[in-house]
Amino acid sequence: MMGANLLEARNIAKHFGGVKALTDVSLSIRKGEIYGLIGPNGAGKTTFFNVLTGLYHPDGGELIFAGDKLKASAPHLAAKCGIARTFQNIRLFGNMSAMENVMVGRHVRTHAGVIGAVLHDSRTRREEAAIRRRAEELLHYVNIADRADDLARHLSYGDQRRLEIARALATDPKLLALDEPAAGMNGTETEGLRTLIEGIRSDGITVLLIEHDVKLVMGLCDRVAVLDYGEKICEDVPSVVQKDPKVIEAYLGGSLA
């Protein structure tokens, strides 16, 4: 399964005014792998994420996703192509239940419109039932089925992270992009998250992981790219990346030891 490129970023550039957030970033993510994107604060990880998911327009370069050139013109199209994401600062629909949050994730793969909703015909009923079933499955999958009817904003921090992942999975992604999913988690929660991500990968979904927790990244990822000042300084398997002098310098010999 692993081998062919699912995503290829070619010379992606993005600047805000005079600040170059990304310069000529090229990287490729292979189908079925867990790919880590790390770098010091302000290295441009989240900017890359936002370009990938259509929130920002790149000022240069192109993205090839599943063989097609990605016209990342709008976030909802990225989702349709099969790129799902979570946010660094969790963004759930706070006043909807956990269940409803995941059901919204099914939006892009379902079709019922106003007329269907009003008539409630058999096709709409079937679709609605399927949405509900799938959402229940996913809540089980991320282990928060018991909180299905609670409002998203009443969930604990770790559960909110899990709910966000479930919502992203509901869009049937080929690539799941996680923006610092372990941020603010304790050791046990991080361990649970690692198991969850491994499970997602073994179900055939490619994972792109931005993370501050270098230990998690090194233990989990098949390959890792390092960004520094908006440029890719290294891309390889963790064991090689860890020894790269440029990477060590970028982190000032800090947490990589």
């Binding site: 909802h76 759930l92 994730g105 939006h107």
Partner: peptide
């Protein structure tokens, strides 16, 4: 923003 990320136009 989250709604867009879920594929909602």
């Amino acid at each position: 923003v989250a709604a867009k990320a879920c594929g909602i136009n």
